[in-house]
Amino acid sequence: MSDILVELKAVSKFYDETAALDGIDLYIRKNEFVTLLGPSGCGKTTTLRLIGGFEQPTAGTILFEGKDIGTVPPYKRRVNTVFQRYALFSHLNVFENIAFGLRIKRTPEKLIKEKISKMLQQVNLEGYEQRDVNSLSGGQQQRVAIARALVNEPEILLLDEPLAALDLKLRREMQHELKSMQKQLGITFIFVTHDQEEALSMSDTVVVMKDGKIQQIGTPVDIYNEPKNAFVADFIGESNIVDGIMHRDYLVEFAGSSFECVDFGFGPDEEVDVVIRPEDLVLIPAEDARLTGIVRSVNFLGVHYEMIVEADDETAWLVHSTLMAPVGSRIGLGLEPVDIHIMKKVREP
């Protein structure tokens, strides 16, 4: 328990009548790389802003090392933030941007110089001290923003979609750099993104959110392999989600046939969501399959083909396979019991 750094207890945030956050519980450990993941409007940025102190919770408590910090202003928190679009001070050069926080704390000039030169080395920007921040590229601005936050040696670094404005290649590079920086510095990172690939590749823990509620918390592997509900399954990677009926433990009926599965603990004949990843469906001859259909489209995506197969009950199945069947041909889809994920239906209010 002692290594818990931040804890949110039943935290809600309302803007007027609409809930941005609806009673979330979350704790974050020291040195953890946590990603808040979800579509826009899911409350991930609000959560970050509450931890940063830019907003106050409407209900619930936020604990920092066990102490309530709900109303502590941002400038008194040992937390620093890398903002969306960086929010660099354009009237100051690179050096003064990074020195900003240190100057507020009246750090001796000599120490400021030392710290900044170390920091610039860390983010690969040596020699850029006197540059105008407006003349920097997006990636460089990003590094200045990270340096400006990290130089204050915060307990937690908050990152609000910091990579959203970068191109794909730069983005990959920065993902690696951020990850290794976090390991090296031993600082807790809380990272907000709507990009599931980014979340899976960088984090120790992923928090999937939707409509102001936490859907699932887990390691990237857990989240991908064992999504808790259809939303998570759909949001993390691509999925086929169809209606099914759980006849009894280990037996589910969907698409007109019954299939063995590994799930249990549902009521008899309970209606469920059946989730199957497209890469878990394999092409087999139609005669050998319980699930058959006609190939409606084929896309070559480099590593694999993406096919849409229309089954006999008119449901469309997304299939990823290194093999290809021509459009119009009749094929079978094979699947293993472990690849069938059964989820309770979410009752929409």
Partner: peptide
């Protein structure tokens, strides 16, 4: 202005008045 500029100043330790004077005013000069 980037709407987070003021928050960035608070984040780096400025009081609200300090953020206004040290960041917002120079930026809109």
């Amino acid at each position: 202005l980037n709407k987070h500029l003021y928050e960035a100043a608070l984040d780096l330790g400025c009081t609200p008045a300090g953020a206004l004077w040290k960041v917002i005013v120079p930026e809109i000069m």
